[in-house]
Amino acid sequence: MASNTEGSSDWLYEARNITKKYGSFTALDSMNFHIAKNEVVGLLGDNGAGKSTLVKMISGINPPTSGDIFVNGKKTEIRTRSDSEAAGIETIYQDIALVDSMSITRNIFMGREITNRFGFMDHKKMEDVAIDILGSAVQISGIDDPRKEVGFLSGGQKQAVAIARAVHFKRNILLLDEPTSALSVRETEHLLKYVGDLKKQGTSSVLVTHNLYHAFMVCDRFVVMSHGTKVFEATKKDTTIEELTDHVIRT
């Protein structure tokens, strides 16, 4: 085992002995979790198992109460969204995190506007890039105007915009928290294939899902959580859908 100040250099991200408490409630209990290079991790578990808490912790908006985090083997503090952005982590949140009253383009570049050195936005360039990335991650049905307000999109279209945004800004790690809940069958297929393509290009992903078949299609390794801890972990070749189902239901 590596020392307390050094993580494995093969791992993009490692959380060691992570605990997260809300008052007296323990949402994560001495959890160990890592993401290796070139892999897709399936994070499974029933409702309330702590999956979303873990995702929010990795993405920096919900820092741990105690425990250590290592990025590329180096001990790192990730306590805000800017910390995780610096570590190359992007997240597609379950509740989507879009502003309904803003246009698609403005949502995509929210907080990361393309500006000149005085902070004034380059609308044309942002719209150009927005159109490019809207076509790349998911085949979104029916979006034809990047200036359209996000509030007027369907659930699936919103999710597609959130995915396009995360995919565009990701560098090392992409976290997907229930990304397919509002997508059609065709859009889901496309997204899962895209996650596989990203792996080949060197971006690892964490896929949080209730759908074990989706997870089994793209993931290399599975982590099953229950009551804030890891209860099962296996690589794809060492396990089956039946065994995973069993662990999710039983624990």
Partner: peptide
């Protein structure tokens, strides 16, 4: 842009 984001959906602005 940040005024609109924070006023429109505070949680989304934090998440981003």
């Amino acid at each position: 842009n940040h005024f609109y984001a924070v006023g429109g959906n505070r949680n989304a602005a934090v998440a981003i």
